[in-house]
Design a protein around this nucleic acid. Sequence first.
DNA 1: CAAGTTTGTTTCGTGTACGAAATATCCGCG
DNA 2: CGCGGATATTTCGTACACGAAACAAACTTG
Lengths: 181, 181
Amino acid sequence: MSPPPPITPDLKSEVDQVLEAVIYLYTESRRLTKELARRADLTGPQLTVVKILEQIGDLSLSELSERIRAQNSTVTGIIDRMEREGLVARERSKEDRRVVYIKLTAKGRQIAREIPIEPMEMLRSALETLTAQEMRDLFRIMTKVAKRVRAMARRDVGEPPDGKGEGKAESRGARQRAEES
Amino acid sequence: MSPPPPITPDLKSEVDQVLEAVIYLYTESRRLTKELARRADLTGPQLTVVKILEQIGDLSLSELSERIRAQNSTVTGIIDRMEREGLVARERSKEDRRVVYIKLTAKGRQIAREIPIEPMEMLRSALETLTAQEMRDLFRIMTKVAKRVRAMARRDVGEPPDGKGEGKAESRGARQRAEES
DNA sequence: CAAGTTTGTTTCGTGTACGAAATATCCGCG
DNA sequence: CGCGGATATTTCGTACACGAAACAAACTTG
């Protein structure tokens, strides 16, 4: 595209390495989740669900899918399999008969107790080893990059300007998915 | 593990926001790929394949799966579907009859031409808008974090110390997957 | 209160994604 | 030559993941 802006000769490779690091960090946390999950005969998303339910308590399916940032239809499948394994149970709400609460069974709770760390905690605690100054820098830079990407997204893909303003500007956009198996 | 080191009160929330940014950057590039792909009636991974083949030329299936950091068995499926759509063709190598070369068809090449940007380029060029100083900082910090995560991985999951030393230390570990549909 | 809309969940179809096992070749070695 | 091991690809089984459509219950309004 544009001729490489000749700043430092190895700046280009730093870009690649940062890119690599972002990818690494993201995928590695998923891989670790999966690894931990395997010990309890769970899949990655299943471990995530179990830990969330353990900490927060019963959730409706919609609330759950919002937490793990996946579609309802995806979570339905995950819960189907977990129910089959006796890890969770569905219970229809009495106030609103449309909603279904997902709750841990004894077996599910037992397994949750056996697994100490939650997935994303690993990345989180790695970040916590940074100095305050580093955190500040990282935060500032990442925010800048994220904003850039968002801007390019608008330009290149042409999104409708976000219909109903959601105010907080956080929680919007970060659309992870339940780490797949 | 260790009790939360009480540094600054709002440092914790910065951790969350950086975490959010990492997730955002990664998933947003995938989402954008998918968005672009839809315009040519392709899926995310299919667009990636088309652009790679356009730029690099014919590749064996193994070479291709290494490029998009997915398992051979996954890529086999992707190529199956693309072949069915007439986007690529398989051609057995004459020197080594085990290998299959994947090549773009005229139709595939045509579509590749119609789509300007490659997926990860978006994130890459966002990174390139940083100043040299920011790049240096970011690089240093990300490297530190990545190293931390790797260390925890060894400790918590207990990996065999990387059987056959692969030398480069790069290309190892960053195990992305072809962005799923 | 009934028609129409919204909301919560499931169903269905398609496409990744992985790992283990099956196949087919190739290669080196005796 | 023949055999065992390495390499390249495919097959198979299971689990996500998403979007569109189907459904059912709640809500809105005339």
